[in-house]
Design a protein around this nucleic acid. Structure first.
Length: 327
DNA sequence: TTCCAGGTAGTCG
DNA sequence: CGACTACCTGGA
């Protein structure tokens, strides 16, 4: 199956900036591969692999161009539903901007972020592992780790624009060696002294998070049903996934926001904490959980989008740099 | 070369 | 509960 289609701008509400969305560092997944103005990724639709390619002129009324290629049969409607979901096209950005305009502290974010949307996970399990890998870690580092896991243990599919990999299923990651030593101990025969062990999680650069990733994969096999999680109320879902190793409040909110589209989530990292203190509590210091409660109370169902907009605004406006503690 | 960023888990009060 | 620190790795 190979098809090309368009999503007309009348079919989604408000502006759209796909490159900005893809490169904004959301922990749903690494940035998609970019090649002659198309962004490409292999997604699974009803279990069938499908290469999706999208292109769009930012914040114009031109349609989103979509190409889909699959060894199986996938309907145009299914492709459209998936693209709309991943780029959150059903979310009414104009309405959100009206909300931002009502708060003088938030209104300035609009000009820096026009068309920025949630970049939602096409694979919720990948989002869980991405979010765990992102804790205490730079964007470059965790995205590289996720790519490594896909190359080592994902299923490979060849397309004219290259090889693409699925993210490995929980059953696979649950049984991967944690580090060099464990990989070595599993070897049957003698190996040369200079043999490089690379088929283990720590070789992906995840450091001490390797054991969290393996134990989380086992939890998803054993007791955490992701379909049930998706149907839970936000608060129940939050407390449920706090039981996953490597998942604290910040990572839990990233998972629920980017992986499951729960807009009430308000992930508080050190930067959002500094930004919120600067804007709403100048001269004061708050606990991270106080910032989270304040954000959820004040922004409600828009909390996740506000977090996204505040962070990007602060980065682009130079506010972030000015909030960096100097020694 | 050392130093440091950055959330969570674990420990101690 | 709150406060404090170790944890890996890559980049400055």
């Amino acid at each position: 199956m190979e098809t090309e289609l368009e999503i007309n701008s009348a079919e989604f509400n408000g502006p759209l900036n796909i490159p900005l969305t893809i490169h904004s560092g959301q922990t749903s997944q690494p940035a998609w591969k970019e090649e002659n103005s198309f962004f490409k990724e292999l997604v699974s639709i009803d279990g069938i692999p499908c290469l999706i390619e999208v292109a769009h002129h930012a914040n114009t009324n031109t349609p989103v161009m979509v190409k889909a290629t699959s060894p199986g049969d996938i309907s145009i409607e299914e492709v459209i539903v998936n693209v709309k979901d991943i780029f959150d096209l059903n979310f009414d950005l104009n309405l959100f901007y009206e909300f931002l305009m009502d708060d003088p502290l938030l209104a300035p974010t609009i000009d820096f972020c026009r068309g920025l949307r949630l970049f939602k996970a096409h694979d919720p399990f990948e989002c869980i592992i991405s979010s765990i890998s992102s804790a205490n870690c730079s964007i470059i580092r965790w995205t590289r780790s996720i790519q490594d896991m896909k190359c080592k243990w994902g299923q490979s599919y060849h397309f004219s624009s290259g090889n693409f990999y699925t993210f490995p299923a929980p059953e696979i990651l649950a049984h991967v060696p944690e580090h060099d030593l464990e990989e070595m101990q599993r070897q049957e025969e003698e190996l040369p002294k200079d043999f490089l062990f690379q088929n283990n999680l720590q070789a992906c650069g995840v450091g001490y998070r390797a054991k969290y990733i393996i134990r989380t994969a086992r939890a998803v096999q054993d007791w955490l049903n992701l379909d049930e999680l998706a149907r839970m109320r936000y608060d129940d879902a939050f407390h449920t996934i706090l039981d996953l190793p490597g998942v604290g409040p910040k990572v839990a909110d990233c998972i629920l926001l980017y992986g499951f589209g729960m807009g009430e989530a308000f992930p508080v990292d050190v930067w959002i904490k500094r930004i919120m203190e600067h804007l709403y509590f100048p001269g004061e210091e708050l606990k991270p959980h106080e910032v989270r409660e304040f954000g959820r109370e004040r922004y409600g169902k828009y909390a996740g989008y506000v977090q996204l907009y505040l962070f990007h605004y602060a980065r682009k406006s130079g506010l972030l740099e000015s909030l960096r503690p100097q020694k």
